[in-house]
Every structure is written in C-alpha cells, then in structure tokens.
Design a protein around this nucleic acid. Structure first.
Length: 989
RNA sequence: GCCCGGGUGGCGGAAUAGGUAUACGCGCGAGACUUAAAAUUUCGUGAUCGCAAGGUCGUGUGGGUUCGAUUCCCACCCCGGGCACCA
C-alpha cells in the first residue's frame, strides 16, 4: 500500500506550481469573468500563527472553488509592514526596524508558500516599501487639496515623566500611566486629521445597499452614532444687561455661530436635541465645563469663583470617572445669568455640569426633566421644576415619562383588514384587561366567553359587516412587562391580532379620517402599512403591531400652546421651525486623527515655512523618504523624526532656510485603507492604481477578515474609497461588496491563545507532522466560517481529518474502470451540489463533512469507480490541493501515455472545471416515509419516492405499532407529505 | 440601559419556505487482528424505565398557534459582541 507521504507530496507540488505559474492572474482572461476575493494582509510580526492560517487557508478553498467554476480569480497577499512592534524591537534589541521588518517578511513569505494557497504572489504589496508609501503620501496630498485632511488641535494624554503621548489604552483607570506610573495630564497638540465626519451620513446610508451581515452593519452604525434632531438657540436673558431691546435686536442679527466669537459678549447658546417636541418642558439649561461661552459670560456670572472651581475639578477627573453613569450628577448654577426658553419664553436657569460632554452635539443641552432620565435625576437633586409636556402612551417604552407623571390610555390595534379590491388595509383598535373588556368598539364579554372568544366574535361580526372574511386568526394573551407597574396595580394587558381578507370594504371617505383616528377604526393605505412594517418584518406580527400602534398613537403634546394635541413626532419639526432652529444630525464619530509620534510609519509629506504654516511636499519629491539617521527610544517628548539631521537638511535644501519638516508619521490604518487597489496594479509607476484596471476588478467581491476591524480598518477604507471616488480617482464608491467576519481559534484549553497560558499552537509543527492539507481541511471543518465563532484547537479533531485524508489516499489504490452504481451516482451528484453550495456560503465545515460521507461510501466498495473518484478529487481539491493533485496525476498516468515529466498547467486538477450536477439525479429513488400518529413517530417505511397517499396509508395501517394507536379512536384526518411522511390524526373515543 | 448575534449529546457542530432532531468529526464502550501495544477495522453511543418488544422525556425556561414546532408568535433567563451620562 502506498503510504501518504504529505511532506514529499507538498514540497513537490508547491515547487511545480510555482514553476508553472499556476496561480498567476491576468487582468483579463478571454471568456472569464473577473472575481476579486481578499483577505486582510498580515503585519510581519515574524511568524505565521494559527490565526493567520485560519485567515488565509480557508478563504483559499473558496478562491480555488471560484477558479474551478471558471472565473478569473484575483486572490492576492501582501504585508502591512509599518507599525510599532518594529520600533519597539529596535529600541529593545538595537536592531534597525527596517531590517527587522524585512527579515520577518522574508521568513513569513516562505511560511505562506507552505500553506499551498493559490495566492498570486507576483502582485505582493509591502506598505513600508517607498514604491508603496509614495502613493500613500500622494493620496494624502489629494485629500489635503480637497480639504479632507486638515491640521487641528487635539487633546492628547500626556505623560509628564516619559514626556510622551499615550494612547487611551496606556492610561490606567486611576489616571496614571501604565509605564511610568505618573499622573497623566492633558495636552493640546496640533495634529493631522481626516475629515471622516464629512462622510458620516454616506457611511451610514450606503450600508443599506451592502450585502453584509447585519451584525457588521449595526456595529458601524453604532460607531458612527448618528442621531437626528434639531439645533435650537436659547438667548441669554437680557435682564442682566438692563437693556432688553438692544440685546434682543443684536441676538437676531447675529449669525448662528456668533456665540463663540470672543469679542462680542455672548448672546445665545446653541443646543442639540433629539426631542425638540419637548422644548416647552425645558426648565433649565446645562453647559459642559469646557464650553467656550463660560469664558465669555464670566463678567456676568455672580458666583464665578464657585463656577471656576467646579470647572477645575472636572478637569481633574479622568474620562472614566466622568463617564461613569453610576456617579451622582453634580453641577453649579450660573448665578445672575438666565436663558430664555424660545418656546415658552420663560426665563430658565443655566448650570454647568460635567454630565454634559463637550465633544458631543454643541456641548450644551436644554434640560427636560419630565422626559429625560438624566435631566430628571439632576432636577430632583437641585430641586428644579419638572414640567410635563407630552402625554405618552403608558406602554410606549421608547419615550416613557419620568416616574409619577401622567400617562394616557393606549389604544391597541387588534385587527388588520385588507381590502383586496382596493388594496387598502383597515386597522381595528381595541384595548382591554383580563378582567373584562373595558373599551373599544367590540363591546363586552358575554357570560361564559373567554376574552379571546369575545374578540374573535367581534372581529367576525365587523368583518361580516364589511363583507370580509377572516383568513387567519392568531390571538395571544401576553403578560406584558410594560404594563406590570402601571399605577402600582399588577394588571395584565393583552391584545389580539387578526388578518382579514376583505372582498369589498367601505371606502375610506365614508369615515372622516379625524374621527377614525380618535376612535377605533383607522384607515391607512397599503404603502403606509408596508412602510411602517418594512418588508422583512411582516412575519413578526406582534412586534410590528406594537410598533404600528406606537406610530399611530404616540404621545400628544400638552402645555405647549398652539401645539397642544399634536402628535409628538409631528411636533418636532413644527416646533423647531417655529423657534428658528434647524433640523440636523449629530454624530458620535470624530474626525480621524492620523498623526502618530512614531518613527516606523509613512512620513506625512508636509513641511512648514518659517512662520509655521504647513505646505504640501510637491509630487516630484515623492516618495518623501523616511529618514534613516534617527535616534529611537529617547524621551525627548518629540517624534523620533525630529532627531534626523538628514531630514532637516533635506527640507532646508529643498525649501529654504528656516523651513522645518513634519515630524509625525501616519497611522498605519492609512496604509491599509487603499492596499486592495494597489494589488490591481502593483508595478504602476505613474498612477497609484489605474482606473482601467479598477474597472476590471473592483469592488472586492468578498472580503474576509477579523471582527476587530469592523469599526476601524473597514470603516476607514470605506471612507477612503468614498473620498477618492469624489476625487474621480476610483471607479466605485464602496470598496467591498461582501464582508465576512471570521471567528477565532482558541488554544486546546478553550482559552484565547496566549504566551501567558502556554497554550499557543504552532501551526508549523502540525504542518510538519500531518501536512498542510490536513491543517487546511481541519480548519475548514472546525465550524462555520461565516459566523464569528470561537473554536478550540482539538488534537483529536485534527487526527480525525488526517485519518480522512489517509482513507482517501488508500481509496485511490482501489480505483477501477467499473461503472458507478445508481446509488453512488446519486450520492456523487448530491455531493457536488452540497459541497459547492456550502463553499459558496462559507460553510466549509459541511462541505468537508459531505466529502467524508462520500469517501465513507467509496470505502464500502471493493472497487472504486474511476470517473466518480475523479469527480471526488475535484471536490477535494480546494481543501487538500496537494493530495488531490497527486492522486489526480496518479489516475491519469494509468490510462495516459503522458508521463509526469511532461506535466503542464492544464494537467493540474486545479485547472479542471468544477463538476456539474444533474438535478434529476439528486433525488433518491426510494424514500423513508415517517409514519406518525398525532404527530408522533410510530414507524418508518421504505417506499418508492412516488408512492401515492392511498398506498402509503394502506402500508402504514398494516404496521402493528401503528395499528395499535389507530384503533384507540377515530381517524379524523390524514396529513400526507409525498416522500416525507404520513400523519394520522386520531380522536380518542 | 439601547442595539446586534446566539443558546441543540460528554465536546466541535448538522438539520429551519414547520415534516423522521443530533449528519460529519472527536471522545467514550465492546469486539476482531496482534505474544503485546500502537495502528487498522467492525459494532454501539441523547436521557430514562424495561429481560425484551416497546414506552416516556428531550433543541435555555414558561406559554401560544398547528395534525405536527429546534424552526413561527409572546414573555422571561443566560452567553457573546457593538455603543453608552451621546442630549
């Protein structure tokens, strides 16, 4: 028996594939569609770890499958080679970061080759190569020209001992530095930013069109954190000035941002709110301690010392202290200064309090204690008035009133009538309690009736009047949480939902719309209902139905003068307009700070004139080289580039005496924001990536990577792509058509692999022992790849996969020219279908499992039919490319005159077409029919697929196990599913 | 707190336009081969009652709809992740 010598096979084929350039991809191949699939390129840390294997090797099976399906597949690889570890290694061991990085790349490149991936390595990109970062700089300058890159102030964590900038992660919760232990301070530095906030809306809105997992979209939405609301202007009360008229006049004439002008005394404060409808309930205002207007109002504030003290205190607090929700709210009133509520015209007090964040919205809020939890807590503490201006429905969980305030009765939609003739829907409203129906058109419960029965009756009556037919009923009783605490009484609310089809329903005009809203019958048209429901949700009736009713019955305004009675949703815009505010959006996301006070990164191509004004380095000087004569690891408080003599000389030589370079380098996320475009055109010396080539490949069809990059790399590169799109430099506005987040491989103990636990699995050892094919197949088999799972490395599991491959190797010895049996042919075609389908959806585990099923079946045969086995090898090829290739050749040699020496590309199993399956052969000729009585399995019959109900029934009734139950009562119904089951419904006598 | 995922044997996981739950692999048990072990191989393997035939229970918990629910609906619990004094 020929043993499975993985080492020999893998070495041989890797060499030969390379020689024959098997995986080289042209930008155009006659008769083939282009398909671009991508994995995140690695940082060259020195060694490929298990995570890299999982990230590269499983998507490789997909890329190989696509190739065999006849597509021209681009599957490139490169190195994201700028970054901190190189610099740290340099400081620690005195090695040049350049040398360290490129040695690592050389080593990892070899390791990658041993994976047996179908990477086209001729397109490799390395971000620290001057040929690459020349274009990173060029793109930076393009964004700079467009005003998308700017220099601004940033507050950074500053370690006064080490004299260095710290990342948030380097600051301990107690506010001291992780490294030096010094109390970390704040320092304002001039830093470079990208204006990603300009793209916030598009980054959110365009997610809609993308075929991405909801999980990823939602994470991006949360990260961007858009909220829609209004900017409203609150005037400072003129009484302080003693000159009412003039101040008001001034305020009206001044442009919006005048409040922040330092020369004019401040006259108004801007706030952002998502609830302009509650404006009339605003009883005070709060400014964040950092708000500029505090400085401008200084003269007027009577207790300015107290205020100043408070502001100093909050500066002392760390971010974590300040954002701790559990902490009691504190604040100080600005005595002697009042604001005017633009709605009610009342004078209201102004506070400074650190529960308001300077960096969000306008850094100032209008406080509505009746309708906001935080404002309520603050108002309680400082004894401020609470004024309720909305009567919400008591079940409105989104906008509950604060404790002890009034609620209205909610009307609940209970029926949903559709008029087939007009396509209109009618909603019937009703609300009740378990004790008895209290309101609604449908009257009460008759004696002996359950509430459900009562409602059903009413619905049917109502339907009959309208010539409607109830086609589905689906009543519920729910002990709904939102009602439990109502007025201290533990009441249970319930509601019912029916869909009725209506043959002819009275026209909308017959019931005045207003009346319909107030009472019980509400007319809406189909579009409105569908809009409210959304196409996907129509199944989730209960939740839709609540949502719908909350749309129809949301809170009504009170105490708001002319707006009273208006729906709170409608009031938002009306009130905003009335008081001269504007509807707008605010975002959580901040501009992307790209400056890094580091050495090993892409230099920012900017120089400063003697006055300190920034100027771009012109294109002809790119790449703006990273200097080599720097001193690393010195605690100068400046970026390492500042120590380069060469850089200074270069700048003075090119630009003039007194000119200085930018010392910071770019965030490495900039490098990786466009790398997928360089793969397309890696040798282009005149363009970063030609549009012609982009047209051929972009967007990336499927991009697989780590979940940790969802809100960083993926978001940043989407921004880049959009910005470049607007500049006319790229052909697509979204870079990735599909994005999938891969899971994590854990140590054998189920914990995250870490040196600390001593559970790090070295893939090289396993490759040595069982082979790359085995590790590849094992990683594909471990679990679904399209979900973010966490899978422990299982030694038994990998042994099982090795056994499988050995079995396949043995099977090849039994191959003969025998015809495949009908059964094997059927299984083969089923396997072609399943393996392909599951690779397509990244569920490689079930693909492998199907291959195992097929090989188990082959193993039962004395002789393995050759054609079937060849098909099997094609299915195996994406997972175990070396073994499949070896066995493919061995089969070929037998019947062919050509020997191994004459092997060409086209002889490769990887150049074969993916097998087709015959739909007709998928069905098994016989089926196991389940025999059920009242839904319980009582037996199984093996019958031809097409057996009729009568025959199945006759056969089934003969079974003793079934007969026993059939005689217990009368068979009232028989459910028959052809080829699947028969179910006898027996009513006991 | 809000939002997004998810909860199935001892373990990784299969199966959802509602239709025989636990495919495939690991582990475990028994047998064959062997002087022996490993390797290989055959059979068994959700729980429970039973000598057996067979019964009962079983997809986080409690309800509902259905002839039939892991799958649909409601409520709750737990785990993972995103955001969070975000106005």
């Amino acid at each position: 028996m020929k043993s499975y010598d993985h080492k020999k096979i893998e070495e041989k084929w890797q060499k030969r594939w390379e020689e024959k350039e098997l995986y080289k991809v042209e930008n155009k191949t006659e008769g083939k569609e282009n398909y671009y699939t991508l994995v995140e390129f690695p940082y060259p840390s020195g060694n490929l770890h298990t995570g890299h294997w999982y990230a590269f090797v499983v998507p490789d099976a997909f890329a190989r499958y696509k190739r065999m399906k006849g597509e021209n597949v681009l599957f490139p690889m490169g190195f994201d080679s700028f970054g901190l570890p190189a610099e740290n290694a340099a400081i620690k061991h005195g090695i040049d970061p350049r040398e360290w990085t490129y040695d690592n790349i050389a080593h990892m490149r070899d390791q990658i080759k041993r994976m047996g991936n179908a990477f086209d390595l001729s397109r490799e990109v390395v971000t620290s190569d001057p040929e690459y970062y020349k274009w990173t700089q060029w793109l930076f300058l393009k964004l700079y020209e467009k005003g998308l890159s700017y220099r601004g102030k940033a507050v950074v964590n500053w370690d006064p001992v080490d004299k260095t900038v710290l990342a948030n992660e380097q600051v301990l919760p107690d506010g001291t530095a992780e490294r030096s232990g010094a109390k970390v301070g704040k320092k304002e530095l001039k830093q470079w930013f990208f204006k990603i906030t300009d793209y916030a809306d598009r980054l959110v809105d365009d997610l809609e069109e993308l075929d991405w997992p909801e999980e990823i979209k939602e994470a991006q939405r949360n990260w961007i954190g858009r909220s829609e609301g209004a900017i409203l202007h609150f005037k400072i009360a003129p009484s302080v000035r003693n000159n009412t008229e003039q101040t008001q006049k001034n305020a009206e004439e001044l442009p919006r941002n005048s409040a922040s002008s330092p020369r004019e005394a401040a006259t108004s404060i801007e706030v952002f709110t998502t609830r302009p409808d509650t404006l009339f309930g605003t009883t005070y205002m709060v400014l964040s301690p950092e708000h500029r207007i505090l400085e401008e109002l200084k003269e007027k504030i009577e207790n300015r010392d107290e205020v100043a003290r408070y502001i100093d205190q909050s500066k002392e607090k760390t971010e974590i202290e300040r954002t701790n929700e559990a902490q009691e709210k504190t604040g100080v009133e600005l005595k002697g200064v009042k604001a005017i509520n633009p709605g009610s015209r009342e004078e209201i007090p102004i506070f400074v309090a650190d529960y308001v964040i300077a960096s969000y919205g306008t850094g100032a809020i209008m406080a509505v204690p009746a309708h906001d939890e935080r404002d309520f807590a603050f108002a309680q503490k400082y004894n401020l008035p609470v004024k309720q201006v909305i009567l919400p429905c008591k079940e409105d969980r989104n906008n509950p009133p604060q404790k002890g305030l009034e609620e209205t009765e909610r009307e609940v939609v209970v029926a949903f009538l559709k008029n087939n003739a007009t396509g209109k829907y009618a909603l019937l409203n009703w609300h009740g309690t378990l004790e008895g129906i209290t309101t609604g058109i449908m009257g009460g419960i008759d004696d002996g009736e359950t509430p459900e029965e009562a409602v059903l009756k009413e619905i049917q009556e109502e339907a009959a009047i309208n010539n409607a037919r109830v086609v589905r009923k689906n009543p519920w009783i729910s002990s709904a949480r939102y009602c439990a605490s109502h007025k201290g009484v533990n009441r249970t609310s319930f509601a019912h939902w029916y869909i009725c089809e209506v043959d002819s329903l009275s026209e909308q005009g017959e019931i005045p719309e207003e009346e319909a809203k107030l009472h019980t019958l509400i007319w809406v048209d189909e579009e409105e209902v569908l809009d409210a429901l959304g196409p996907e949700d129509q199944k989730n009736m209960w939740s839709n139905f609540l949502r719908l009713s909350s749309i129809l019955d949301s809170g009504k305004l009170i105490q708001s003068g002319e707006f009273d009675g208006l729906d709170s949703e409608d009031a938002k815009e009306a009130i905003t307009k009335k008081v001269g505010g504007e509807m707008t959006s605010t975002y959580r996301i901040r501009d992307w700070l790209l400056s890094r006070q580091r050495y090993w990164g892409c230099p920012i191509p900017i120089v400063y004139d003697p006055e300190g004004n920034p100027h771009p380095v012109s294109e002809e000087h790119l790449p703006w080289l990273l200097p080599e004569d720097v001193k690393l690891g010195e605690l100068t408080g400046k970026s390492p580039l500042a120590t380069s003599k060469e850089l200074h000389e270069r700048v003075e030589h090119l630009f003039g005496v007194g000119w200085t370079p930018e010392y910071d380098t770019m965030d490495t996320f900039v490098d990786s924001s466009w790398y997928f475009l360089r793969y397309l055109d890696p040798y282009n010396e005149t363009e970063f990536s030609s549009k012609e080539v982009q047209k051929a490949w972009m967007p990336v069809a499927r991009y697989s990577g780590g979940a940790e990059h969802t809100t960083m790399h993926v978001l940043y590169s989407r921004f880049f792509q959009k910005a470049l799109f607007d500049l006319g430099l790229v052909t697509e506005s979204e870079p990735y058509r599909e994005r999938l987040n891969r899971g994590l491989i854990l140590g054998t103990d189920g914990r995250k692999m870490s040196k600390r636990w001593g559970n790090v699995v070295d893939p090289d050892e396993h490759v040595e022992r069982v082979g790359a094919d085995c590790v590849r197949t094992y990683l594909a088999f471990i679990g679904p790849y399209n979900e973010v799972g966490a899978y422990p490395w299982d030694m038994g599991g990998i042994a099982g996969v090795r056994r499988f491959l050995e079995k396949v190797n043995t099977l090849s010895e039994k191959v003969s020219d025998k015809e495949a049996s009908e059964e094997i042919t059927q299984l083969l075609h089923e396997s072609i279908m399943k393996v392909g389908r599951d690779i397509e959806s990244f569920k490689f585990n079930t693909s492998v499992s199907q291959l195992m099923v097929l090989s188990n079946r082959f193993a039962k045969e004395e002789e393995v039919p050759k054609e079937a086995f060849k098909t099997f090898l094609k299915l195996l090829a994406p997972f175990a490319p070396h073994l499949a290739e070896e066995l493919w050749l061995s089969l070929r040699e037998r019947g062919s005159t050509q020997n191994e020496r004459g092997w060409t590309r086209n002889d490769s199993v990887h150049m074969q077409a993916w097998p087709e399956y015959d739909e007709a052969l998928l069905k098994k000729p016989t089926a196991e029919i389940a025999i059920q009585v009242n839904g319980k399995l009582r037996g199984v019959l093996l019958l031809p697929l097409e057996t009729s109900e009568e025959e199945v029934r006759a056969e089934a009734e003969k079974l003793p196990a079934v007969e026993k139950y059939l005689t217990e009562g009368e068979v009232s119904k028989v459910v028959f599913v052809p080829g699947k089951l028969i179910n006898f419904v027996v009513k006991k006598a």
